[in-house]
Each structure stands twice: as C-alpha cells, then as structure tokens.
Simulated assay, not measured.
Amino acid sequence: MHDISIWLLFLFVVGSYVQSLTGFAFGLVVMSVAGLFSLVSLEVAAFSVSVLSMVNAATGLYGGVWKLVNVKNLLAYFAAATPMIVIGVYLLDFLGSNALHWLQLLLGVSIVLACLMSLMKPKKDAEASRSWVYFVFGGISGIFGGLFATSGPPISYLMYRQPIALNVIRATLLSVFFITSLMRIAIMGVGEQITASMMWVSVLGLPCVLITSILAKRYPPNISPQVIKQVALVLLLLSGVSLSVKALL
C-alpha cells in the first residue's frame, strides 16, 4: 500500500498540474495511467478521483460563482444522470469482481472516446439547447461518472456549444462535477463499498492536488496551455488504446 500510494500521489500531481493549466480532465489522467499500469484497483482510483474532483469543484464555486448556474438545465441533466450514476457504480463493483478484463476494455474505450470528443472543437449554436438535450447528455455522462468518475467530456462538449457567457458555462460545469462526485460517494457509502484503501489514498492525495493547483497557477510554464493539452490528449489516447489491447490479450 505504501508503494502504491507514492505512485498515485505522483499521478495526482501530474493530473492536477495539467488540469490547472488547461482545464483538462483530471479524472481521465488518473484513471488511464492507474488502469494501464495497475497502480491500484479501478474502484480505488475512481473513488479518489471523485473525492478530489469534488474538493476542486467546491473551491471553484466558492465566492458566489455557484449563483451563475443554469438551474433549469442542471435539473434536466440530473434527471437522467442520477439513475445512470447508480448503475455505473454498481456495474464497476460487479465487473471489478467478476470480469476485470472487460472492465479494463471498457475503460480503455471510454478514454479513447473521451479524447476524440475533447479533440473536437464545438461551435456555438445559434439557439440554446432544449432541456431534452441535457437529459440525453445527462444519461451518457452519468454512466461514465458512475463507472470511472469521468463524466466531464460529454457535458463539457454540450455546454461549450451554448450561446451563453463563459462564466455561466464554467459555473454549471463545476456544479455538475461537484454534485456528480458527491452523489457517487454517497451511493458507494449506502452500498457499503467504501474501503480503508479508498479513504487512505484520497486523504493523501488532497494536499498534493491543492498544492499543485496553487503552484501551477502562480508559476505557469513557458509553454502554451493549448500545446500542453494537445500533448496530454495524444498521450491519453495512446494509453486508452494500450489499455484496450491489454484487456484483449
């Protein structure tokens, strides 16, 4: 457990650093590398991502940012996302115990799809999407969020297509990440799936994420965030493909 924690802490630092500079998904970075190199079980990795993402989102919403949230669309989103998060959490527990290779394959394919979606630059729509669109994307994001704590790519793609202010988009996305993480943790708690290892890794990862986020913003590298994001996407795409191949062999 000691060695695993050290490698995971390093992974948390890398993921937090990339996300702080680019806004890129912390969860995808952690889940892809942890799954590829079997640093820890996917259940433990997903739980720690949920805890740390919730803390990160809460920090972003602090100071009245939460007042900008588009509540109507958020309700439509979670009407579909909630049951899918429940299904995703219990599917992760079942596959982790009975069909690990299928779980690894599913994670690999999910990472590849998430990277491809992140590479697509959404264009602003002339009109705001209707509530049923948020409902559909809520179902898709919910299953990813329940399985691997990576609900970001689908809903982020949808939100950045909306003809609304960027601060409203950011506040709504942060709220989605916070509530999704909180729900995922609560569902695991009710199902008595939270283990000591999950808590231990999450507690150790917290200062790493917070300190790295502060330092990355205060001392950014002399490299364009867009370049860093593109490099991260390529590496994640390769890790997703490698994980899928690993699961099939």
Rank of each mutant, 00 (worst) to 15 (best):
Y157A: 00
Q193S: 14
S213Y: 09
G205N: 10
V40R: 00
H2S: 15
F78T: 02
I6D: 10
V231G: 13
F178W: 06
L210E: 15
M31I: 10
V86G: 01
V241Q: 06
K72V: 01
I164Q: 10
V234C: 13
G23M: 04
G23P: 00
K217Y: 02
V227D: 05
L106Q: 06
Y157L: 14
V190K: 12
M84D: 07
S129V: 04
L74W: 05
S156G: 14
S197A: 15
L237E: 15
F78E: 03
Q104S: 14
T195M: 12
Y62W: 11
L210C: 09
M117G: 15
N167H: 12
I6F: 13
A128Q: 14
F12S: 01
L42R: 03
L28C: 04
L233S: 09
Y77D: 00
L11A: 07
L92P: 04
A46D: 02
T212F: 02
G145P: 01
G146A: 13
A114L: 05
L39P: 00
K217V: 02
K124Y: 05
F148H: 00
G27C: 04
L116I: 12
F177T: 06
S213A: 09
I169F: 06
R130V: 07
V51H: 00
F78N: 06
V136R: 10
M198T: 07
I155T: 01
V18S: 00
F47I: 02
L236K: 01
V136T: 09
V89M: 10
L158G: 10
M117P: 03
D125N: 05
M84A: 13
I155E: 01
M188I: 01
Y157K: 03
F135D: 07
I211C: 11
F177W: 09
V227A: 09
A171F: 11
A46K: 00
L103F: 04
L74P: 07
G15N: 13
L174K: 02
V33D: 02
I194S: 04
L52K: 01
D125G: 11
A79C: 11
F177Q: 00
V49F: 03
V234F: 12
